[in-house]
Simulated scan of single mutants.
Amino acid sequence: MLYIIAVAGALLAANTLSLVIAGWRIRSRQDETPSVSARPPVSIVIPLCGVEQFSRETLESALSLDWPDYEIIFCVADKADPVIGVAEEARRAKPLTQATVLVGDDRVSANPKLNNCVKGWNAALHEWVVLADSNVLMPKDYLVRLIAAWRPDSGLVCSTPLGSRPTGFWAEVECAFLNTHQARWQYAGEALGFGFAQGKSMLWRKKILNSHGGIQALGAEIAEDAAATKLVNRMGLKVHLVGGPFEQPLGRRTFREIWARQCRWARLRRVTFPHFFAPEILLGVVPPLSLCVCAASVSGASLSITAVAVLCVAYIPELLLAARKNWHLSPISLVAMVTRDVLLPAIWIRSWLAGSFDWRGNRMVIGSNGSRLEAGVAEPIASP
């Protein structure tokens, strides 16, 4: 009995500690822009594939940065992709920014996103290069915050996405996954010396990556951010995070989309960092709640009071973190967090099973053997 209570208490304590560390580490979106001693020229490479709800807004945000000298390189694999028109419209709306659209596909890896970035990386004119997803909403101080986070021992600076502007319940669940769960644990991990890359925004020094195989080296893993993390660690350098995550507007989401995306990310983590992924089954409220309810049942304590106490200990600090950092909160945020935590064990179990998924019109295959990565790309298929 005491052992069960001790384990549950340890899990809740770890949850609270991670929230405290993240709260200390992450700057609020209302904080002042950090200062930088120099503003070197920067190239921003943005892979595009398909038109999304906020595509026009996010692409125009990339063309509106407060930085004296930077270029934007939009990369598109398929010349028939309608996103080319959106990128051209964004360029016309912001004619003072140096921007180009490159079309073509370099099959250097099993990762379609990485393949799409190769031509942009090769064309980049500047030493500092940012690889940024097209759905990142860049604030005007985007480059200031990336450069300010670079330290003498940095090999890479990146940002996890911050979910915002959700429409509907499942988009709220997506926010609960992205913000107070994934971003929280990533910042807590970095603060404890376990920084890892996130592919949404990655700032590189071109000479560092080129001296270790170039952008093609990021094809060593099926996910380019996992390959980046391992490469930087082999260099004896570190992955650092920006002071606060950059926004990703979500719009409407469905359960099917959330399930597919979270299962895909979980399976990628499982095959690339299995020793870190295995303990993820202990995250969320389900393990400590189950243990505490079991202990209460055996001891004759009130099950309802026990459950409410565990939920308060788990979620009040999480809600406070979101509120203090000015992240998205709504009347159903708590329900979305509980739903997320109910899904976590099922997602973890699903990650250990073999299967395939569609990634931007490509079929990706991941095997069930966690000791190695079995991945491949079939011929492109129609995007859903």
Rank of each mutant, 00 (worst) to 15 (best):
A227S: 09
R360Y: 15
A10Q: 07
I222R: 02
D105C: 04
V286N: 06
L17D: 13
P249H: 14
A148N: 15
L218W: 01
E172K: 07
S333H: 03
R92F: 13
L156F: 09
I349T: 10
S356A: 15
A99N: 01
C292Q: 01
I366P: 04
M235W: 14
L311M: 09
K206W: 00
A188C: 15
I347E: 01
R264Y: 04
L2V: 02
G284R: 00
N179S: 12
P95C: 09
Q198S: 04
L156G: 07
L311W: 00
A124M: 09
V7F: 03
S302H: 08
E32Y: 13
A278F: 08
N362L: 08
A110Q: 09
L329Q: 08
P68C: 08
F194D: 05
R256Q: 07
I258E: 05
Q198R: 03
E57W: 08
L373Y: 06
G168L: 13
L143Q: 01
R267Q: 14
F276A: 11
V45M: 03
L203M: 13
V83Q: 01
W204M: 03
F74Y: 07
V271W: 02
L162K: 06
R27I: 15
V36I: 10
W327N: 02
H328A: 10
G50K: 10
A382I: 15
S299F: 10
C294D: 07
G104C: 06
L192M: 14
S330V: 05
I208Y: 07
A188V: 11
G23T: 14
A375R: 03
P112H: 04
I4M: 11
P152Q: 11
S154G: 10
E379G: 15
A336P: 02
L311S: 00
N210D: 15
A323R: 13
A123D: 03
E224C: 04
A191V: 09
W265D: 12
L319Y: 06
V136Q: 00
L343N: 08
S368A: 14
G300H: 08
A38L: 13
R234D: 15
V83D: 00
F357N: 12
V285P: 01
A191H: 09
V83T: 06
K325W: 09
P112W: 02
L241R: 10
E257D: 14
R145T: 14
W150C: 09
S37G: 08
L320G: 01
I208P: 02
S64E: 02
D81S: 07
G163Y: 13
R363H: 15
L231N: 01
W204Y: 08
C312W: 02
P161Q: 07
I46E: 00
P40F: 06
P384C: 12
N233A: 11
D106V: 00
G193W: 05
K140E: 10
K238T: 12
L320K: 04
A132L: 02
R269H: 14
V271R: 02
E190D: 07
R56D: 11
V86L: 06
S35V: 14
V20H: 08
A226F: 04
G355N: 14
I281A: 08
S18A: 13
T306H: 03
A93M: 13
E32K: 15
S383R: 15
F277T: 13
E221W: 03
D133C: 06
C49E: 04
D153C: 05
G236N: 10
R350D: 15
T306R: 02
G195C: 11
